[in-house]
Design a protein around this nucleic acid. Structure first.
Length: 277
DNA sequence: CTCAGTGTTCAGTG
DNA sequence: TCACTGAACACTGA
């Protein structure tokens, strides 16, 4: 379930397991779709014996800084996870209980470190991607991405000027990784809901007040979701998040507002017409 | 059996 | 050329 907060949570998990550790053993699955710019066997060969210095994130991308290049870059797609036995209690794709089997179902790469700890990247529906780059920051798509609201936030003023200069539909722009890195479908809906702005509004019709509300909602949703380690159960009860799944036409928010489901910006969108203008 | 889906890319349009 | 839209991608689980 990877949007910015989930990927940040994965980053911290990987660091807990692997920071400062050498890769003692590594296995890759022969998947030529998920391994985008490198053969699976080459990926394993290049990384074996290398030490993980730290793990970085920009938007939904993760890259591991090794003691020597090349460095691996991961995108989890719609269904990717990092699994670490003994560290996490995440539920992987259904049918897997933590500790039940290793490597976990749908694994693409798994490895063991010098401290004996293990880590696997899984990806059931193969929209995830694995890359290997000498210089991830300049060679990968990371270089074309917009600001990361957690690690490199821009000011409210700058955000408002930028957003109001666009003709795109609001939700479409929030999802555009070249504008903001890390916002996905549920966060975009949550931001519009909290800002009380309809997701189908054109950005160049937003008032200064509305664009400020969007900025505030963006920062709040990102920081709050990350502060609880992307654990959905700990998201505030007032969030639309808890009621948006399953396209249930009878769904209501915690305030009793009726939720509508429409396609906006090419994605299923949950919103509250009586609240969002 | 059918279809939605927490994401990205790229061809096509204006 | 630029900004933007929408279909295509892959595959599980409902």
């Amino acid at each position: 379930m990877p949007e910015l907060p989930e990927v940040e949570s994965a980053r911290q998990k990987i660091q807990t397991v692997a920071k400062g550790q050498r890769i003692r053993a590594i296995q890759t699955l022969g998947d030529t779709i998920v391994f985008e710019n490198v053969a699976p066997a080459t990926f394993a060969k290049k990384l074996k014996g290398k030490k993980v210095l730290r793990v970085h994130r920009h938007g939904k991308f993760l890259w591991w800084e090794m003691d020597k290049p090349p460095h691996p870059v991961f995108h989890l797609g719609m269904t990717g996870h990092f699994a670490a036995p003994g560290i996490d209690n995440i539920e992987l794709e259904s049918g897997f209980d933590v500790g039940e089997q290793w490597p976990p179902r749908f694994w693409k790469v798994h490895m063991e470190f010098d401290n004996g700890k293990k880590l696997a990247m899984t990806n059931a529906r193969r929209f995830g991607r694995i890359f290997l780059y000498k210089d991830p920051l300049t060679e990968s798509t990371i270089s074309k991405m917009g600001f990361d609201p957690l690690t490199q936030p821009i000011t409210s003023k700058e955000f408002c000027e930028k957003i109001r200069s666009k003709k795109a539909v609001l939700k479409g722009l929030l999802l555009n990784q070249a504008f903001i890195a890390g916002v996905g479908n549920w966060m975009a809906d949550e931001i519009c809901y909290q800002a009380k702005v309809a997701p189908q509004r054109k950005c160049n019709t937003l008032t200064p007040k509305e664009s400020q509300a969007i900025y505030k909602a963006l920062m709040k949703v990102v920081t709050k979701a990350c502060s609880v380690n992307a654990d959905k159960k700990r998201f505030p009860k007032s969030w639309l998040f808890h009621h948006r799944w399953g396209k249930d036409e009878t769904a209501q928010t915690s305030k009793g507002e009726t939720i509508a489901f429409d396609t906006v910006g090419g994605r299923t969108t949950a919103w509250v017409p009586t609240r969002q203008v």
